[in-house]
Write a protein that binds this DNA or RNA. Structure first.
Lengths: 148, 148
DNA sequence: CCGTATCCATTCCGATACTG
DNA sequence: CAGTATCGGAATGGATACGG
């Protein structure tokens, strides 16, 4: 299990998120789930992770309400791990990582996978943080307001 | 230094990103940088991380082209760590974590910090992945196209 | 096929002490 | 202040063996 701190006193949502799922395997499991993976051994095969680790992370993710277990959709008597709405809302996190990686971690020569809209077959547009009036805000145009 | 795999053969941008910076400390350092932190000891104070670890991560982040060192802006002879454009483009990643955490990791009672637009003082809108024509796409309306 | 339990090597991290 | 060096303990991860 990834490291934990006193999750109660932490008032930064970024830190709390990272404490919970800011671990390599958790995020890759979630990524695979967005690719449609649901079965234990399918996660295991794609990630190449030890089964004990995978079981541990899946347990954590279920506890956290990011996945839920459901009976297998095919005939078999095993279970599947499917994203809850809470888990699905991690989509922007995965997409943000993907877009940053695409832009900065691959040369023109390096082939990489691309996330596309099923309808049009085109890549998604780059996500940009916006203010309430819809304008794109740059990092230095924002500030963090502390609680209380 | 965080774990590394054979970064060359990895064709998933998410995995490559996580290999590089998908470590708790790196992302928290970047978060603090967006809050305006530039000095070694200021990072150290805010994160409570061991200095050796911090030095290690800063070195890694500079190597990765996410930070660059520059002479101190005040009179002192020390250096500052400032985000490069590549580092600044991690903003959506941090914002995505922040927004997810705000929505799912805090109860109504739990105070947390909020990222606001400096101009209006209002929180940012929630980022949503969009297709090329500007429509919001849900996870299951997308698919990953493999290279080659 | 789906996990759990155990063992061992490695890695990570924090505390401390030291340098310029 | 801004790091570097070292050291011991804790956590991690992979392999293997085992059970439902």
């Amino acid at each position: 299990m990834p490291k934990r701190r006193d999750n109660e006193t932490e008032t930064c949502p970024v830190a709390r998120s990272l404490d919970l799922i800011g671990d390599r395997w958790c995020l890759l499991i979630v990524r695979d789930a967005f690719d449609g993976v649901r079965r234990f051994s399918e996660f295991q095969r794609r990630l190449g992770v030890a089964r004990s680790i995978l079981a541990d992370r899946l347990r954590l993710l279920v506890e956290a309400g990011i996945f839920e277990v459901s009976p297998a959709s095919d005939g078999t008597s095993y279970q599947e791990y499917v994203l809850t709405p809470k888990g699905e809302r991690l989509f922007p996190v995965i997409v943000a990582f993907r877009q940053w990686g695409e832009q900065h971690l691959f040369g023109p020569r390096d082939a990489h996978s691309v996330l596309v809209d099923k309808g049009s077959g085109k890549p998604l547009t780059v996500m940009e943080p916006r203010s309430a009036d819809g304008k794109v805000v740059r990092p230095w145009e924002t500030t963090v307001k502390l609680p209380r």
